[in-house]
């Protein structure tokens, strides 16, 4: 007998979401198969420390234009336990809203000093920090005037932890109509970076973004071993 989980929502005004969102409810995983749904990514990550600084393409190169910001926080499971040594991948648009991806055909200006792709590892306490340029908003649906608010994409792979999400910015006027933000409802708060003052270095400000990975997967093996 089938047991059902979540019904995924379709993002309003998002054509791709309409084309790609499953119409059936997700199925719950029976206990006898649960462990097999915990992929374990091998730790093959070799990271150059400079990859956490997205404000320059390489050390010593000119700084990218726009507001330089720090983004930092702690990676945890639902119980507040740190997720250590996880690979954190970051990608975001430049100050004009343009990506360096060769499939971005928006025609928005590209900054020769901004790659918009970075990586770092969480520390033994689960903490992380990266530097980037505050991304601009861009017009996602010119036909109806709907924008994508400024956002930073994050991808976490750490042992059995997996999350792809986005950090949004507080009080941005475009937040309200974003399709995925609408689906999140009140819990959107969890995806907003909290602004803080940065006194060291030449930064506009910082944003604190604690990342909590839900469900049983994040520390599945730790829980079962000890």
């Amino acid at each position: 007998m089938t047991k059902y989980g979540r019904q995924l929502g379709i993002g309003p005004t998002d054509n791709t979401s309409n084309e790609r969102t499953p119409r059936n409810k997700l199925n719950l995983i029976p206990e006898a198969a649960r462990t097999s749904f915990v992929p374990y990514a091998p730790r093959a990550h070799s990271i150059n420390l400079a990859e956490a600084d997205m404000t320059r393409i390489a050390p010593g190169r000119p700084r990218a234009s726009g507001e330089a910001i720090k983004v930092s926080g702690k990676l945890m499971d639902e119980y507040g336990r740190p997720i250590r040594n996880a690979l954190i991948e970051i990608w975001n648009a430049n100050q004009h809203g343009g990506y360096t991806h060769d499939e971005d055909h928006s025609g928005l200006p590209i900054d020769q000093n901004f790659l918009g792709i970075g990586r770092t590892l969480s520390s033994s306490d689960g903490n992380y920090e990266f530097w980037t340029i505050k991304p601009g908003a861009y017009l996602a649906r010119p036909d109806i005037g709907r924008w994508r608010p400024p956002h930073i994409h994050v991808s976490i792979i750490g042992g059995s932890s997996r999350l792809i999400s986005q950090m949004y910015f507080p009080n941005d006027p475009h937040n309200a109509k974003d399709p995925m933000r609408i689906l999140m409802g009140d819990s959107f708060e969890a995806n907003i970076g909290k602004k803080y003052i940065v006194t060291d270095g030449d930064f506009d400000c910082g944003y604190n973004f604690d990342i909590i990975i839900g469900g049983k997967n994040p520390t599945f093996f730790e829980n079962n071993i000890t």
């Binding site: 945890m76 639902e78 991808s155 792809i164 999140m184 959107f188 990975i213």
Partner: peptide, 12 residues
């Protein structure tokens, strides 16, 4: 703790 919402990977 309240989990961070998953979000779309986007096109890029």
């Amino acid at each position: 703790l309240t989990p961070t919402n998953e979000d779309t990977v986007g096109p890029y």
